[in-house]
């Protein structure tokens, strides 16, 4: 395959997200301006200007009308996807790390970093259908985990919130009461910071990637560990193919060591693993920095990766990908 290289960002990529139809690709980077691209040919549609810090994550509503972005400038913003206009700004006292719309787009979960004396927190906000009626109140605030909470997503039927972060523990919270329901086991769980978390299409299971050089597959309801994928590089990004039983891991050596070694030694490929057999299928090379973000097109026929090198690489699979065997 010949990937499409998209160079819109001037700083390392942090997050990638496809909309539900898979025709738009949203990219977040440390350069303050999230960007939207056409996912088929990589043409830039527009940028969302207004943030004043690195943008860590974004999410797009099911109807592709609203975009929510979380930034290090201590704000979370709602945008009109079509025009790039800012609709609302949630202000926090510490950088916002992760954002996720609930099923139905009526709620959003936002995590904030520990900052000054503040501890990290998970906030649940109501999202009004009409942006003029949007309020900044939190429906729920959950505190407790130590260190940054790198990801928080909605569990099945919005009943739970799944979070993971620097303390390497995956937690499931009740989304109504904020009570801690389940916690991953220290023995079997991750040993280092969980950097990314990605749900399966049906939400029944999710995969976490960690700096302990592994990715783990969990059941969304019971939080039982199903599979572990071992690799030889810290994992910064994980995603799952919606079409085949494939898990993709992205990562690479620490960004601070990149310039000291040959790029081939850095292990900057996106690694494909068989979801069930936990065996490596192959790697897709190309980035000259660690991969920070991965996203699969909802049709499963293409995926994109964003790297520390500031590039988004959009890969449309060759036909022979769909019948690779181990």
């Amino acid at each position: 395959m010949r990937p499409i290289l998209m160079k819109g960002h001037e700083r390392p990529l942090t997050f990638l997200k496809y909309n539900r139809d898979g025709d738009l690709l949203f990219s977040c980077a440390k350069d303050h301006t999230p960007t939207v691209w056409f996912a088929d040919n990589g043409e830039r549609l527009g940028t969302y200007r207004g943030h004043n810090g690195a943008v860590w994550t974004c999410d797009v509503s099911r109807d592709s009308m609203r975009l929510i972005t979380g930034s290090a400038d201590q704000t979370v913003k709602l945008w009109n996807v079509e025009t790039g206009a800012q609709l609302f700004t949630f202000n926090f006292d510490s950088p916002a790390r992760s954002v996720d719309f609930s099923v139905g787009d009526k709620l959003a979960v936002i995590t904030t970093d520990p900052f000054m004396e503040l501890t990290s927190a998970i906030h649940v906000k109501r999202i009004a259908r009409d942006p003029s009626q949007q309020t900044a109140e939190s429906a729920l605030v959950i505190k407790g985990p130590q260190g940054r909470i790198n990801r928080a997503i909605w569990g099945p039927l919005n009943r739970t919130i799944i979070s993971a972060g620097e303390d390497a523990i995956v937690r499931i919270w009740d989304s109504e009461t904020g009570k801690l329901l389940k916690e991953s086991d220290k023995e079997t769980g991750h040993k280092k910071t969980v950097t990314s978390l990605s749900k399966a299409v049906d939400g029944s299971h999710f995969v976490t990637g960690s700096l302990d050089k592994s990715a783990k597959l969990w059941d969304s309801r019971t939080l039982t560990l199903i599979k572990t994928y071992l690799t030889e590089r810290p994992v910064n990004a994980v995603t799952m193919s919606p079409l085949l039983d494939h898990v993709v891991l992205g990562g690479g050596q620490d960004a601070s060591h990149v310039t000291t070694t040959d790029h081939r030694a850095g292990k900057f490929e996106a690694k494909f693993y068989d979801k069930i057999l936990q065996e490596e299928i192959g790697g897709v090379k190309g980035h000259f920095g660690p991969i920070n973000a991965l996203a699969f097109n909802p049709d499963g026929k293409s995926f994109s990766s964003g790297g520390e090198d500031g590039y988004v690489r959009l890969h449309h699979f060759d036909p022979d990908y769909f019948n690779v065997k181990i």
């Binding site: 395959m1 960007t35 040919n41 549609l45 025009t83 897709v284 090379k285």
Partner: peptide, 29 residues
């Protein structure tokens, strides 16, 4: 949809999106 943000004033020559000249394969271990 009309372009917005920085994409409006994009030069034709800016070449933000390029197709890789390199053929990338799924490399089997």
């Amino acid at each position: 949809w009309a372009k917005f943000g920085d994409a409006v004033h994009e030069d034709v020559g800016s070449r933000l999106t390029m197709v890789s000249t390199e053929e990338i394969l799924l490399e089997r271990p």
